[in-house]
């Protein structure tokens, strides 16, 4: 059995940057993403140029069956997971009153159910490969309650609480759980465009995914509990802890 790092949502953005960073560290990879998102090309590029083992699975993780399917496929390929990076997520999409029921239910399935279930499915793998780790990709939105991010923030706050509690449970097996809460990143072309149109001050907090990924993995391997990539974002977190709620509300209300 070969030990692998499993990354969900690996075809684009932060997931892709994490995959490339892991490949540079010569870690074998299991990459998962939606079909037709360039995953196969990424996998074969990393495999042939970084001399690592790469398995790719184009699976939609929004159902329980598909999460089980992923587990079974990994086992069929004789893979064992040492590090799990739950990165796949559905982003926010406007005001709650305008969101379709299907949209936010899928969002909950992908952002909450899938990472929870995958953590459970691979738990024996983590024990076998101990010391091993789980990295859950949450968001700054789990701390800052912005309008238009209702369900999204909620799912990310879930990941934060889930990870912190699980970290205490799994410590005895030599399994650590880290949470990364990135702020704005230049991931999809649409977000890159949006980010470039921000004012100077807001633009300073935006990170390129490769920089966020490098910092995240460095701290993950130091087994840090909470990872906030970027200096400005760390500053935001500090201000959050010292500013009174009334001022914070004024600031976040302007973001609408």
């Amino acid at each position: 059995m070969k030990s692998y790092t499993l990354i969900t949502g690996a075809s684009t953005g932060f997931g892709k940057a994490l995959a490339i960073e892991c490949a540079q560290k010569k870690m074998n990879l299991i990459l998962v993403s939606l079909p037709n998102s360039g995953l196969v090309e990424l996998g074969s590029f990393l495999k042939s140029n970084f001399k690592i083992n790469v398995l790719t699975f184009e699976i939609d993780l929004s159902t329980k069956e598909n999460c089980h399917l992923l587990y079974n496929e990994v086992k069929k390929s004789k893979g064992s997971v040492k590090y799990l990076i739950n990165n796949a997520g559905v982003l926010s999409n406007g005001l709650f009153e305008n969101l379709s029921e299907d949209y936010f239910l899928t969002q909950i399935d992908v952002n909450i159910t899938a990472p929870t279930l995958l953590t459970k499915l691979f738990i024996d793998d983590f024990k076998t490969n101990s010391p091993s780790g789980i990295l859950n990709v949450s968001s700054m939105a789990s701390f800052f309650h912005l309008p238009k991010k209702q369900v999204y923030s909620g799912t990310k706050a879930y990941l934060l609480s889930f990870s912190k509690s699980l970290r205490k449970e799994l410590k005895k097996y030599g399994i650590w759980v880290s949470i990364v809460c990135p702020g704005g990143m230049n991931t999809t072309t649409g977000l890159c465009l949006q980010n470039r149109k921000l004012g100077w001050a807001s633009r300073q907090s935006i990170l390129n995914p490769e920089d966020a990924a490098r910092e995240t993995l460095k701290k993950f391997f130091k087994q840090k509990e909470l990872i906030i990539p970027g200096t400005i974002n760390k500053l935001f977190m500090f201000l959050d802890s010292v500013l009174p709620t009334s001022i914070k509300n004024k600031l976040t209300n302007r973001a609408i």
């Binding site: 892709k16 360039g38 074969s44 590029f45 140029n49 230049n186 072309t189 470039r196």
Partner: peptide
């Protein structure tokens, strides 16, 4: 390009966009 590997059509982009031209041409 990555190290001495020539870019082929199937190569995924490995780094973020460095300027607005690259970004909008990709879009």
């Amino acid at each position: 390009s990555y190290k001495s590997i020539p870019i082929e059509e199937a190569q995924p982009r490995l780094a973020s966009f460095t300027n607005d031209y690259e970004l909008t041409k990709s879009m």
